[in-house]
Design a protein around this nucleic acid. Structure first.
Length: 442
RNA sequence: GCCGAUUUAGCUUAGUUGGUGGAGCGUGGGACUGUUAAUCCCAAGGUCAUGGGUUCGAGCCCCAUAAUCGGCGCCA
């Protein structure tokens, strides 16, 4: 007999047919004469009804013994039925328990554990993440996440970008050295990469338009809802592009992600309580661009204490973005607030040609990017100015020595985008096994 | 790194002025012919995070430690 997907039954594709279902027990209830099993597979869940009279005593007792998360193969007839949640149910002919659950070790993710988390997480659920993944909420998050990754790939590939991979073991830092994970490397020290960018710049003269989605690692002891020590970083680099052009790619990919979620996952978004009109606005709007100076003035006008030259920390981002209804770009930060690879604005050397994209609803920065310092003379000056050693960056400097060209790119925090668009309370909710300063297990 | 909080059964929790810890979920047994987190009855299940201290007596008061959670800095 043909195994069918539960979603296909719920879509009415098997009305009145004898079908085989393979899945796991989501819930089980009933009396001495009739038993209801809510079976789930990766596509959905459906009520299966077994009557003692029709399945026989032995099968009925078997069904009663199938605890939550037992895996089953069920044969039966698919029928529309108003009494069943979802409008369809299976009239059971037979049940085979494939993987039983021992009553002495029942599935630990109970209703009470879920209710306490209130759509978020608790220590217990984090400790049992490998099992929590099976719940509707986590499954929904993982499906949204898959769509986000797919949308990023489609966006860049449709524009003829080349997907390009950089090493994860590296010798030097992109950001400040204090946030590097050091790993022993055959008697030497190596580090886990913080960004694909420097290696992408090396390939920029060869491929011109390149992108990746890869993990980045940062040893920040951050305890916030926006930080992970291992996060998924979508980065891109383009030859001959200026800051404005790079921003248009950033806007393009975020709009594409929002649009793909609406097209492919509107049901899941709605189940999380997401307003589809809001997601639609993110997919269809232009994202305004604002200079750093303007942001500082706005904040000062709101009575926020901030001096020119200070980087915008989260508390200020939050105030700034609270009235935004779409993401905004912030450009032209002071040179002193940014690392050496940002290109100094030729019109005013107090600034660099960079941008951050700030998401609304209090989610903050999701993209950081800009033009790169591209002439050999300038890159050497800026490296020395910051007191950064030249040696680990020799390959990076060589990129400029041999036919340097204007170029730029950005990095997008994929998990942050997932968190924002799904409306999650914490970035941990959108990644299967989150890593932060306190947790590397399970 | 800084600030704040939490820790009682497998899970979620109540616990009064300090006087030998109650419940719900889950599990086991029983009842029930259609349930929707089914319902009803019964049972098992606790060194109250760890280590000290105060006290005739500590889940409760004090100190230390640990783990965890939240916020900040830093960033994607």
């Amino acid at each position: 007999m043909k195994t069918v997907w539960i979603s296909d039954i719920l879509n009415g594709k098997h009305d009145g047919q004898k079908v085989e279902l393979k899945g796991w027990v989501k819930r089980s209830r009933g009396s001495n004469k009739i038993r209801f099993i809510v079976l789930r597979d990766s596509t959905g869940s459906i009520q299966c009804v077994a009557k003692r009279d029709s399945v026989g005593d032995e099968c009925f007792e078997n069904i009663k013994s199938a605890l939550i998360e037992s895996s089953l193969i069920i044969h039966g007839e698919a029928n529309p039925d108003e009494r069943a949640d979802g409008g369809y149910e299976i009239i059971v002919d037979s049940v085979e328990i494939v993987g039983p659950v021992n009553p002495e070790t029942p599935f630990p993710i109970t209703e009470s554990a879920m209710a306490a988390a209130d759509g978020g997480e608790t220590e217990f659920l984090l400790d049992n993440r490998h099992l929590y993944l099976r719940t509707t909420r986590m499954t929904t998050m993982l499906k949204l996440r898959s769509t986000v990754f797919g949308a990023i790939h489609s966006y860049f590939r449709d524009l003829d970008f080349i997907e390009y991979q950089a090493p994860n073991f590296v010798a030097g830092a992109v950001e400040g050295g204090s946030t590097l994970f050091e790993v022993p490397y055959f008697g030497r020290k190596a580090y886990l990469t913080q960004s694909w960018q420097l290696y992408a710049e090396a390939a920029m003269p060869a491929l011109e338009r390149l992108y990746t989605i890869a993990p980045s690692f940062r040893a920040e002891k951050s305890r916030t809802r926006r930080h992970l020590t291992e996060f998924w970083h979508a980065e891109m680099e383009v030859a001959w592009a200026d800051n404005q052009e790079i921003m248009s790619y950033g806007e393009g990919v975020v709009r594409k992600i929002a649009g793909s979620l609406l097209d492919e996952r509107s049901e899941e978004l709605a189940s999380l309580g997401r307003d589809l009109d809001v997601i639609g606005r993110y997919a269809d709007s232009k994202y305004p661009r604002m200079r750093y100076d303007e942001a500082v003035e706005t904040l000062q006008g709101l009575g926020v204490e901030i001096e020119w030259g200070q980087d915008l920390d989260y508390s200020k981002e939050k105030i700034l973005t609270q009235d935004f209804d779409v993401p905004h770009f912030l450009t032209h930060y002071p040179k002193i607030a940014k690392p050496f690879y940002h290109r100094v604005d030729p019109d005013d050397d107090k600034y660099v040609l960079c941008h951050d994209l700030l998401a609304p609803e209090g989610y903050g920065e999701i993209i950081g990017g800009g033009e790169r310092t591209w002439s050999e003379e300038e890159i050497l000056a800026r490296i020395d100015e910051e007191g950064t050693p030249r040696e680990p960056y020799q390959f990076y400097i060589d990129t400029r020595t041999y036919g340097g060209v204007p170029h730029g790119g950005f990095g997008l925090g994929v998990d942050r985008v997932c968190s924002w668009l799904s409306g999650a309370d914490h970035i941990r909710e959108v990644i299967p096994f989150p890593r932060d300063s306190r947790r590397v297990t399970p």
